[in-house]
Design a protein around this nucleic acid. Structure first.
Lengths: 98, 98
DNA sequence: CCTATAGTTCGATTCGATTCGAACCGTATC
DNA sequence: GATACGGTTCGAATCGAATCGAACTATAGG
């Protein structure tokens, strides 16, 4: 398993953010994490096949939407609200509020 | 030719906005129209084939990004900044400012 | 060590968006 | 009417993203 690579705040790109958010599954993930809670992958997408879910985790992480942290066997996800609000104020709220 | 159908302000959906903006050509169109100017299709995308351009115009219109107006042979485009700012404050600025 | 669990990676497939050419529609101009 | 111009529509081709199964890595627990 590779290291979990996240873009830093300055490295966030709006094009990447738009691409990451333009998918119903990933949009649902964002809304699930909207309250700031830190959840595991299985908690968020229990019904999806592992490989498909893993694909979406990578997109969300590499495009700067979530921060991921490994603890034991689990992968915990947290919305990067502070970073996203700082770089693109309003975008996350628009997505979450629908 | 069909009538130009635009969603009204209340009908704007963030999913549709994200889908419309998640494309380099359409992103360029939005940035070209950022200053509020009203331009014709040919002025904005002169190099693209007509059919491809027409496809993008439709996405931008039906997803609520631009308002289109026919005058003679020309189609004029205008960014729906007021509507988008009202429904999804910050999104358009984030996209335009990069 | 053995087994179960969580997630990744790979290759193949599927599916939708993009692209284009060609034919068409409407308008302007002669 | 004839021609040119600006866009649309259609069908076909292309291309990339999403999906999945299978094999794999790594950790937890017995």
């Amino acid at each position: 398993m590779e290291e979990l690579e996240h873009p830093d705040r300055a490295g966030l790109r709006i094009e990447a953010v738009l691409a990451a958010l333009d998918h119903p599954v990933r949009l649902r993930v964002v809304r699930t994490l909207a309250d700031g809670e830190e959840l595991t992958c299985r908690q968020i997408l229990p019904e999806m096949t592992k490989s498909s879910a893993s694909h979406h985790w990578r997109v969300l992480r590499e495009n700067g939407i979530v921060e991921q942290r490994r603890q034991g066997r689990n992968l915990y996800m947290r919305l990067r609200r502070a970073d996203l609000d700082a770089r693109f104020p309003g975008v996350l709220d628009a997505v979450i509020d629908g």
